[in-house]
Computed example of a mutant assay.
Amino acid sequence: MKKYLFLLIPFLLNAYEINFSKKFTKDLIPNILGADISIIVEDKKEKEVIERLDIFNNKIKEYNKVEKQLGSFNVRPQYQRSSNSPKIYGYKGTLNYKIETTDALNMGEFISMITSLKEDRDTSVSLNNLSWRVKDDSYNVILDLLRLESIEWVENYAKNLSADLNRTCSVKVVDLQNNILHTYREAVASLRIDSSLKRENVPVPEVSQQKISITTNYKLECK
């Protein structure tokens, strides 16, 4: 038994591990334009508020060139104090939607259509967080390509290292857990829009290139 142990010691001493990390990066082009739109109607009569918001809501539902998400519709009374007791003096209704599209012209057309329904000063239309983002499917495809690139790279690296050192180097660990999306998104600030806004005048932000990167940790063994 001692003889076999003695023979194994030189082999173990000649084998060693290499631990290191490498960063891989790819460019992404944002392909989804999104915004939050809010319509607020105020009136003394609750029925009037509901009817006017319904006009907006029906038009939004009919327009099929954009995707609508997270729609909410609510009407609440507004109070003022009279003789130390609250008294309803009117109603305030709010209609909110998150809008997304791949075509900036469709976004402009949609916003122009909504603002054209604004008839009086008691109705306001505001636009928030108008910005470009990367579609989830596109992001996942690029992320998979980065992972594949990091695996192929280390396999080639192990082969070249084996040739340079005249040893057999093999990959023992590939840790692909870290990924970071570097965004350079400039969202348009909150805008209160009037009824004269035309689709070509909607302040659509420029498309800014984004980057996704992963830092992969490796462990190689050379014998």
Rank of each mutant, 00 (worst) to 15 (best):
M1S: 11
I9Y: 08
I9D: 12
L13R: 08
L13Q: 09
Y16K: 07
E17F: 10
T25W: 05
T25A: 00
D27R: 13
L28V: 11
I29F: 10
P30A: 05
N31D: 15
L33Q: 07
S38E: 10
I39L: 00
I40M: 02
E42S: 09
D43P: 06
D43E: 09
D43I: 01
E48I: 15
V49T: 05
I50R: 02
E51V: 00
E51K: 12
E51P: 00
E51A: 15
R52H: 08
D54F: 03
D54N: 14
F56N: 00
N57P: 05
N58M: 06
N58E: 12
K59E: 12
Y63D: 06
N64A: 10
N64E: 12
E67C: 05
K68M: 12
K68R: 13
G71M: 13
G71I: 11
S72H: 06
R76D: 08
R76M: 05
Y79W: 08
R81W: 12
N84P: 00
P86N: 10
Y89L: 04
T94H: 01
K98D: 09
K98V: 10
I99D: 02
T101M: 10
D103F: 15
L105K: 11
M107L: 12
E109Y: 08
I111C: 00
S112F: 01
S112I: 05
S112T: 09
M113R: 14
M113A: 13
T115Q: 01
S116W: 04
E119I: 11
E119T: 14
D120V: 03
D120L: 07
R121F: 10
R121E: 11
T123I: 04
T123P: 00
S124E: 14
V125A: 04
L127F: 04
L127A: 02
N128P: 03
D136V: 08
D136A: 09
S138T: 14
I142G: 07
I142W: 05
L143F: 07
D144C: 05
D144K: 15
R147S: 11
L148G: 10
S150C: 06
I151D: 14
E152L: 13
E155F: 08
A158V: 01
K159G: 03
L165A: 02
S170N: 15
V171D: 09
V173M: 13
Q177E: 14
N179P: 07
I180R: 14
R185P: 04
E186T: 14
A187L: 06
A189C: 08
S190T: 15
L191W: 08
R192A: 11
D194Y: 10
D194P: 04
S195F: 11
L197W: 05
V202A: 04
V202N: 02
V204Y: 01
P205G: 08
P205I: 02
S208N: 15
Q209L: 15
T215C: 03
T216L: 02
T216A: 01
N217D: 13
L220N: 02
E221P: 07
C222W: 04
